[in-house]
Design a protein around this nucleic acid. Sequence first.
DNA 1: ATCCATTTGTCAACCGGTTGCCAATAATTG
DNA 2: CAATTATTGGCAACCGGTTGACAAATGGAT
Lengths: 354, 354
Amino acid sequence: MTEPKTPESAATTGPVKKHGRDGKSGATIYDIAKVAGVNPSTVSRALSKPGRVSAKTQKLIEDAAAELHYQVNPFARALPTGRTSTFGLIVADITNPTFFDIIRGAGTTATARDYTLVLADAAESAVTELTTARRMMATVDGLILASPRMDDDDIRALARDKPVVVINREVDGVPCVVPDVNKGISEAVRSLAANGHRKVAYVAGPAQSWMSARRWDGVRSACEWSKLDAVRLESTKPTVDGGRQSARAVVASGASAVLTYNDLLAIGLMQELQAAGVVVPDQISIVGFDDIFGADFTTPPLTTVRSPLGECGSGAATILLDRLAGAGGETAGTLSVETELVLRGSSGRLIVAR
Amino acid sequence: MTEPKTPESAATTGPVKKHGRDGKSGATIYDIAKVAGVNPSTVSRALSKPGRVSAKTQKLIEDAAAELHYQVNPFARALPTGRTSTFGLIVADITNPTFFDIIRGAGTTATARDYTLVLADAAESAVTELTTARRMMATVDGLILASPRMDDDDIRALARDKPVVVINREVDGVPCVVPDVNKGISEAVRSLAANGHRKVAYVAGPAQSWMSARRWDGVRSACEWSKLDAVRLESTKPTVDGGRQSARAVVASGASAVLTYNDLLAIGLMQELQAAGVVVPDQISIVGFDDIFGADFTTPPLTTVRSPLGECGSGAATILLDRLAGAGGETAGTLSVETELVLRGSSGRLIVAR
DNA sequence: ATCCATTTGTCAACCGGTTGCCAATAATTG
DNA sequence: CAATTATTGGCAACCGGTTGACAAATGGAT
């Protein structure tokens, strides 16, 4: 091998310092170009556009890159192209275990497709959420919003800028991933009816929650079908504490079976009822939603309508990544994932006290 | 106001297109410069170096920036400076609820200080962990490793490159945040001793877990002090399932009280014992570690040695951010956070069967 | 050997900020 | 009022890749 081009000469006093390695870490395509004896742009092409350069030049460059432990500088790449190989996930509340599986699903899919996941928490505030989303938009290729609290219009505005996928809510014109509650709910209601229950209460979630409305719809229509009474009760907040506070209303309602907006409410409710001497499920059956982590820690373990949250996360990530890969001209349909009843101990035959 | 400098003239046929707004979103400092009638570099200074420009120029520029809804392009800034306003958090296993609070703590601190958190999961693999860490290093200013599985040397190697903080493990030469188990453990053991227990079992975690070793040390020495027998049992994995599997060994050990490496093990153990007809805490007291989400869902609710995980997360983030802000010459000490006993229903007086 | 159609590599102009150096201006002092 | 010093703003060269335009080299067909 003869020294290709510009050797170390000319390094006398000229102001030529362009692209000089100053001891810092990281080789650049200029270093590779020097080693391989080609032009930097050729290196760039070899490394990003397959088939654009001849096989032997390709090999030459790849070898040099390997030898130098080359790693692209993501910023340098993002600057002219705008592509960042990163997407954001904003969850309504990191505290809420519902999102754990979503985060995991999205994270796994991201890594599998060589993307980086940036996570942010909206702390249940629509304002924080929007601010965070706006800030993120600058650094990501796309965004996933899990149970967003902001307006439909805000979401659509974001979606006009870069691909956005919504989880747990349907927004017109934006691709969504939503658990289809009907199957799980009708299984649950049928099971309750079969066990002798005649009146079912639904403890609702936050008033502005899209999903809570869907679930109530599902419960009402399933009850209608099974000829059961359905009554809707409000809750203060969708947490264990909120569940405790709803116990009084539940008892007052005279229902013998309760479905709650989520598992947290169900767990709190069960704790409070048991503390008051109510036997679950003999006197009251309780069914939650989501099958979150810990739903089976209770005694009796919680019966719940499982939403495949991990699947929602990975599904949303897949949709997003596909859009980023393709020209992005796909339709904005809704991906619906199945829910199912997980029958555990907190629901069962009604034992009428006499 | 008169039109400052270069008006729209000269836009005839010259190849002058530099920094032209091409309809894309986002104003640049060049746009601001034009509006404010100053040089781009002055805009840059006004926006990043406080006090470098005169008050009135500053105002002029800020107004223009506000009017144009200017937002810095993080990539353009990162390219020459290397600063990204981003740090990474790698957790050993996203599935494990222990990390939920850590993520939240770190996330909150990050946002509070205008940093972005990038999350990654190592899926309990030392190799994945190291790969992920290496890849992240290119895009972040610093790194937090929560319960890392990789070698001390690998961690130190990473730390040589950029600031690294470790949670739940002590590594020489690297700043660490570790819960000090002793206070919580001695409270637990004293409580057990006071309740008539004479023999305590410790169900250990993964063999290579630094923290499991610390906890066993703590249990042993606390038992010695309180004149109790201590026996160590191994577990298959630190999960609910692992806890179930350890039940047999626990019973065989003859201990009347058990501390487990973590809450998951404790919960599984309790479920299995109860299924076998053992009454908790009358016949066996169970104490977990961490006070994870759901630890109080069980019946009886779990007594546990709480580690302030959220504090660990935010503490680590604070250390990291302080280092990034300061020249980074601080010592690499260990930040120790206090643990405490959370006395719930799963531990109590030993009722000797007769 | 000549000419045309491809393939492959080079040039140079970006992407949007940052920063060292220097000149112009303003403030301070004699 | 002149001389000196402290501020402030401008110029231009980066950071490290990407990409359109174009020329050189290669190959095939005549």
